[in-house]
Each structure stands twice: as C-alpha cells, then as structure tokens.
Simulated assay, not measured.
Amino acid sequence: MSRSLHSPPVANVPFSRPGTPGLRPTHVAFVGLGSIGYLMARNLAINRHTHPAGNPPLLVWNRTAAKSEALVKEVGANRAIVAASLEQVVNESDIIITCLADDDVVKAIYEQFAKLIISAPSKKRIFVESSTIFPTLAGELDSLISSAPHAHLLTCPVFGAHSVAATAQLLILMSGDYHSKKEVAYLLVPAVGRKVIDLGENIEKAPTLKLLGNSLILGTIEVLAEAQTLGEKSGIEGKTLHEVVQEILPAPGVIAYSQKMINDDFDGTKGFALDGGIKDASHIRRLTAKHNSPMPVIDIAHQHLITTRAIHSSLHQEGQASHDVLDWSGIVAASRVSAGLDAFDRKKVSATASGC
C-alpha cells in the first residue's frame, strides 16, 4: 500500500519529522547535473528548508565540470560548492543524491561508490538514486551499497517536466529503508518536489512505478501524434485539435505536448530528450515481457521513437536539423512521414493537407 508524504502544515503525514539534528551538521551532495538534475540540485541549494543554520553548502559533482561551475555561479558559493572528485563526495557527505543518464552510467558510478565507502571512514550514509532505471538494477545497487556498514540506498525517481522541476513541483517516488526515507522525504519536500509517494521497503517498487507512469505519458504522446497527423490529413488544423485537447484532456502535461507538436517545438534541451524516451520505452517493454503483460501502444511508440531518431539523424548529417537534441514529442515525425507529410515542419504539413 502506497502512502503520501507531505511537508507540514499538510495533515496526515505518515512519517514524522526526523529528530532534532545533533551537533554535527548534515552534509548533502548531488551527483549528475543533466536537464532535471541541475534544477533539482539548484532548488536544493537555494531552499532555506535544506540549509538551517550551521549546515554547509550543497556539494555538487558532474562528469562535465562546467555544469557544476555554472550551478555554483547561479546560486552562489555560500549555497553550493564543486566537488573535485567522487572520493570527496563520499568522504564528506551524509546524503548523496544521484540523477544520471542511463543504467550503464548509474551502475558505473555506484561501483565507484562501493569501492570508496569500503575505504572511507565508517559513518551513516544515505544514497538516493533518482534516475529512471530498470527495477532489477536497484537490487544490484543495493547489494553494492549495503556491503559497507551504516550505508543505505533509496530509490527515488521523480515525475515532472523541465518547467515542473524548475518550480520545485516534482512528484517524488520513494522505496527503501524506513528511517532513511523519513530523513530524505523532509529534505526533498518542499525544496525539490511537492509530494512523496512511499512504496515501502522493497527497493524495486519505486523504479517500477516510474516506468508505469512513463508508459502513461508515452502512450498519450503517441496517440496525440497520431491524432494531430490524421487531423492535418483530414483538414482539421492542429490549433483546432489542440483546443479540443485543452477541453477534454486538461492535464498540464498533455496540453504541453500537444502545444509542442502544433508549434514544431522539439528542442530536447528544454524537455525530455528522444534518446531518454527510447531508453525508457525499452525498459517498459522489458518489464512487460518479464511479467507477461503486453502493452502494444508502447511497442508502437518505441518503433516510432526509433524512426524519428533515424529521420533526425539523417537531417543532422545534411545540416538541416533544427535542433541538435530532439524532444520526445518529436515522435510525431514518424506519423507525419508515414502519412506522406513533412517530419518536423507543420507549415509544410498544412500546405500538403490543404490539397487533400
């Protein structure tokens, strides 16, 4: 049974606040400053709730040091500092939050953590893995981290687009050690997100729910793409269909993706990159195979994401791509091309459709 955690003054908080901090301040680190990770780390650094008197600045590390330096420049050296190495992160931190690109990177980073914590001074450490990973990897990571005394792993993926992360309104999923969840929940809410859903102590549950949630989002994007394309072919303008979307499917995410499609706004640096979508679709399909529970719409969406990537790659090689990184709403390109329309330019689509 899942439970919701809110920061006071919201009633019915299932986890009480952690006890009064001791004499030693809490050291927090953030590893991985991608599109969402950067915003999470920024909000964590500037939020007053995470930095009561005496607590040190957030320690940040990224493979590309320039991102860490940019974050420190944005929030100030009194709120964040750049870690020179992962060794410094492990040695100096009590809570280490990671937000990384894919399973291979996650595993590589946690293998380094495991080696470092064995030789580091023994103390309580909580590792908070917020990437979107396949659930069984969580078990592997837990084995790595629990090899050291007093070390705990939480899986903590998040839901929310770039704009949601920017305003600290992410929905946070959490599974793992009870006492660690209690401490981390009040660290992240309201600094990073608006709500935490607790999935219990089974470390695989939060990553599983994240994939299920992403299947809902991806399935919706696929249907939107198909409907927008059919509308253009049958003489219904994209803006008209978008108006209907706003009326009958008024979820902010659905409206935002519909808006991107009608405006050809496929900049992946401001949204969710296409490669990330392909990775998540692959994970969802693997999960359906594991549990003998087919999701045909995800199979189709996965094919369309790959087709879109191939079209974009071809245009990029020819110097005609409008964006270096494509947002996964660009999946509409596959439907458009299948219908004989232009992949990424709706003005050309409209001109073609008008002659139908």
Rank of each mutant, 00 (worst) to 15 (best):
V128R: 03
L86N: 06
P157K: 06
H152D: 14
S93T: 02
I117K: 00
I145M: 05
G139N: 10
A166P: 07
T98W: 01
G76V: 01
A84N: 13
A65Y: 03
A77S: 04
A108P: 07
S175F: 08
S146F: 08
T98G: 04
E92S: 15
V106D: 04
C156A: 15
A77Y: 04
S163H: 06
Y110H: 13
S163W: 06
Q88M: 11
A114V: 00
K124V: 11
G160W: 03
P157E: 11
K67Q: 05
V90N: 01
K67H: 03
T136G: 03
F159V: 14
I81F: 02
A166R: 09
P135Q: 09
G76D: 01
C99F: 04
E129S: 12
L137N: 06
V90Q: 02
I172C: 13
K73D: 13
D102Y: 02
L86M: 02
G160D: 06
T155N: 09
A165P: 06
L137E: 03
A70F: 00
F113W: 10
L171Y: 11
A77I: 07
M174K: 06
Y110G: 06
S130R: 03
V128Q: 05
F134V: 13
L100S: 06
E74T: 08
Y110Q: 01
E111G: 13
E140V: 14
I81S: 06
S119M: 00
T167F: 01
Q88V: 12
A80H: 07
S85Y: 04
V158N: 09
A165K: 09
L137G: 11
A165E: 01
A166C: 09
L154E: 13
I172Q: 15
I96R: 07
I97A: 04
H162Q: 09
V106E: 10
A84S: 15
A114D: 01
A165L: 11
I96A: 11
A108C: 03
T132K: 09
D103K: 02
S147W: 05
S131M: 09
I117G: 00
N78C: 00
T167D: 13
D102S: 11
K67A: 05
R125E: 05
V128G: 06
A138V: 14
T64V: 07
S146V: 00
F113P: 02
S163V: 04
H150I: 00
L173V: 01
N91Y: 03
K123W: 11
A166L: 10
A168L: 08
L116E: 00
A108H: 14
S147I: 04
M174G: 15
T167W: 01
P135G: 05
S143M: 04
A84M: 10
N78S: 04
E92A: 13
I95F: 12
A151N: 15
K67L: 06
A148G: 11
Q169Y: 09
L170V: 12
D94A: 08
S175Q: 07
F127R: 10
A161R: 14
T155R: 08
I97M: 10
W61D: 00
G160S: 04
I97V: 15
L154Q: 14
A83D: 03
L153A: 05
P121K: 03
G160M: 08
F159W: 12
K124E: 14
V105W: 01
R79Y: 06
A148L: 09
K73T: 14
V75C: 11
E129A: 10
T136A: 14
